[in-house]
């Protein structure tokens, strides 16, 4: 029944969203300088997390299994690229931004996640998290989504982020109900993504692009190459085209996925691109026109701490 009303609401509210879109989706946050100095190191975080042998069950997160939670945070510190959004879930935006704390401030991430676990609330950057009861009950219960099933700390992290940050896509479903991790409740639009990074990590975010219109850049390869040299670069892409499903001829292009650009260079007339796509680093060779077709947003982030 809820799904029926959500679908109806989307159709009714869509024209209003489209009117509001320029104010919501275009994102030109301030940009200052170049700094990627880590706030803390992986070694410090490893020492900290290895000093914890067991955790008691949390009274705030009844479904989280302490052993799986501890195993998950240890793995996130040891292998920060292993974090996985879960299959068929709308957590890709939250998984993408996890790249920053896990690489540049793992101790900050650890302290936050442990405080959330023990007290049910915590500060991260400029944001105060106090998740709803429904979200606290749900963390640890997400099943059949691949390795996310056993990653209880990631379930807590993604659900808390989705519960706390709201963009225009979330207006039709603001309150969490079980199963909402695959609905618009968890969706991330471009402006929301940039805002989350700037508020959580106190990073300077310079972004170009939107949720429906591609950025007007003539040489997107050179632009990305330059961005990559001076900061962390996130791309907001049409993953449907990226997986090259040619069977649907009439599908309109729109962005569906956030990825982290790791490397880009020219070879044999093709662009060689390596990006992080949750759980895996992916290497792909594509033409410049194809690159232009898939990219809807680029966010460039640097540390201003």
């Amino acid at each position: 029944m809820k799904k029926y009303f959500t679908t109806k609401a989307i159709y009714i509210l869509l024209p209003f969203f489209l009117l509001l879109l320029p104010f919501n989706s275009f994102s030109f946050l301030k940009y200052s300088g170049k700094d990627l100095t880590p706030i803390s190191t992986r070694e410090e975080a490893t020492t900290l997390v290895n000093s914890i042998n067991t955790l008691p069950a949390s009274t705030y997160w009844p479904s989280i299994q302490p052993d799986l939670f501890l195993q998950n945070i240890k793995k996130n510190i040891a292998e920060p690229l292993s974090i996985y959004e879960g299959s068929y879930l709308n957590f890709c935006g939250y998984a993408a931004l996890s790249y920053i704390p896990l690489h540049y401030d793992p101790v900050g991430y650890l302290k936050f996640i442990l405080e959330m676990y023990t007290t049910g609330k915590a500060h991260y950057g400029k944001v105060y998290f106090q998740p709803s009861q429904a979200v606290m009950k749900a963390a640890g219960t997400i099943k059949f989504k691949g390795v996310l099933d056993i990653n209880h700390a990631d379930q807590m992290w993604f659900l808390s982020l989705a519960d706390n940050f709201k963009g225009y896509l979330n207006l039709v479903n603001m309150r969490y109900d079980p199963g909402d991790e695959r609905t618009l409740w968890a969706a991330v639009n471009f402006a929301k993504f940039n805002l989350m990074i700037s508020k959580l990590f106190n990073y300077s975010v310079h972004s170009i692009g939107s949720d429906i219109i591609r950025p007007k850049i003539n040489d997107i390869y050179s632009y990305l190459k330059k961005q990559l040299e001076s900061g962390i670069t996130f791309m907001y892409v049409d993953n449907y085209i990226l997986t090259l499903k040619k069977h649907h001829f009439l599908r309109p292009a729109f962005p569906t996925h956030f990825i982290v650009l790791l490397d880009i260079y020219y070879s044999d007339g093709l662009i060689n691109m390596t990006y992080w796509d949750y759980g895996f680093r992916t290497f792909i060779k594509i033409t410049p026109s194809f690159l232009k077709k898939i990219v809807f947003g680029i966010s460039h982030c640097t540390n201003i701490n």
């Binding site: 090259l244 895996f280 992916t282 060779k285």
Partner: peptide
């Protein structure tokens, strides 16, 4: 899929 990377070829 290799140990370090996923390669996509067309």
């Amino acid at each position: 899929f290799t140990d370090s990377l996923k390669y996509i070829y067309y």
